[in-house]
Design a protein around this nucleic acid. Structure first.
Length: 228
DNA sequence: GACCAGGCACATC
DNA sequence: GATGTGCATGGT
């Protein structure tokens, strides 16, 4: 994370390239803030295709119309419905802990929750068991439209391979780098993260497929001398 | 059949 | 504070 100025230019260049190739991703794939929050929890370490099945089940059972639906349902039944998303017992608990938080502190109202300023909102969400930094920031950015950059495994992997980050950089440090390098704009943060995931899925899995990656070529590497 | 996916909490050292 | 482990389904 040396050469701040160079990294800043490189991060914009990467964004422009991905946007040019893929166009707008129009994330989050969900219709309402509640559905986005549920999706953010369900997608933890899980392929989105599996999450879709779980969300379909919840919608079919009319459990995503309002938070009170999820408040009423028993954790065991909830777990059965979200089974395709994997880790279903623990995720059912996590959904419940969010709903209990919303219920006890915001009278089950997402609108009330959304009146908090961004810093406070982030602080509050992070107290919920099962909501860590990435899930929290996905909720802030996609459900509440706040200018917060979401860091995920693909972000780390792609930027490490492009020598912008050293290996095992912490979440907060990576987020800080993005947010200092880019204009504070939730639309930009939204598209950038979505484009990273899109690129990561196609080209930057643990075994990378760099040959046809849009970020191939020396234009997209930091000159920072780092071994990786 | 092995490997992996848009993490997180908790135990242990 | 770093490191290891359980949680689980469905696609490649």
């Amino acid at each position: 994370m040396r050469d701040h100025c160079e990294n800043k230019k490189l991060l914009m260049k990467i964004y422009k390239r991905l946007y040019k190739v893929y166009g707008p991703q129009e994330w989050w794939p969900g219709d309402t803030p509640l559905e986005m929050i549920v999706g953010a929890i369900l997608t933890q370490n899980t392929a989105w295709t599996n999450v879709e099945k779980a969300i379909r089940n919840l919608k079919k059972s009319r459990l995503l119309s309002s938070p009170s639906d999820l408040k009423r349902i028993k954790a065991g039944r909830l777990a059965a419905l979200i089974r395709p998303a994997g880790y279903y017992n623990i995720k059912a608990k996590r959904l419940k802990s969010f709903i209990n938080f919303l219920s006890s502190k915001y009278s089950l109202s997402l609108k009330k929750l959304s009146r908090e300023n961004t810093g406070r909102l982030r602080q509050e969400l992070l107290t919920v068991n099962g909501i860590g930094p990435e899930t929290c920031d996905s909720i802030l950015l996609y459900a509440f439209n706040r200018p917060i950059f979401v860091v995920d495994a693909y972000t780390q992997r792609i930027l490490t391979r492009h020598r912008v980050l050293k290996e095992n950089e912490g979440y907060d440090a990576v987020q800080k780098m993005f947010m200092e390098a880019l204009p504070e704009n939730s639309g930009l943060f939204n598209e950038y993260h979505a484009l990273i995931v899109r690129t990561g899925k196609e080209f930057c899995k643990k075994a990378p497929k760099c040959d046809s990656c849009p970020l191939k070529g020396k234009d997209f590497y930091s000159t920072n001398k780092r071994s990786f």
